[in-house]
């Protein structure tokens, strides 16, 4: 498993750049990923999406469906794509430290 080092922290990531374990997540991870995800500056709204994803994952053990994410955050899908250009799965979930989305994606 490849390792990346950023601001003194070491992360194990898979070939798509997802963190190996949700427990290893820390705010530096978000900072590290944001560039490869095409995000210049992290705003309050980015963090709101990340926190909603993390809270839902901690409570339910799965990532929320897109409709739940939009309902809870109040951001329409179009706006979530503006925040995270790769989308809620590849972008937001990766930054939130959730497992990589599976299924016929």
């Amino acid at each position: 498993m490849p390792q990346v080092e950023y601001k003194g922290k070491v992360f194990d990531v898979d070939e798509d750049g997802f963190i190996d374990s949700f427990d290893k997540w820390c705010p530096e991870w978000v900072d590290y990923v944001k560039e490869s995800e095409g995000i210049q500056e992290l705003t309050e709204e980015h963090w709101k999406v990340i926190h909603v994803l993390q809270d839902y994952y901690k409570k339910h053990g799965i990532a929320p469906m897109v409709r739940i994410l939009t309902k809870v955050t109040g951001f329409k899908l179009k706006y979530i794509y503006e925040l995270f250009p790769s989308g809620p799965g590849k972008g937001a979930c990766k930054m939130a430290g959730l497992p990589k989305p599976t299924g016929c994606v």
Binding site: S21, G61, P99, T102
Partner: peptide, 9 residues
């Protein structure tokens, strides 16, 4: 399993 899977799914 815990790291790479969403168990309820």
């Amino acid at each position: 399993v815990q790291n790479v899977c969403e168990i309820p799914l």
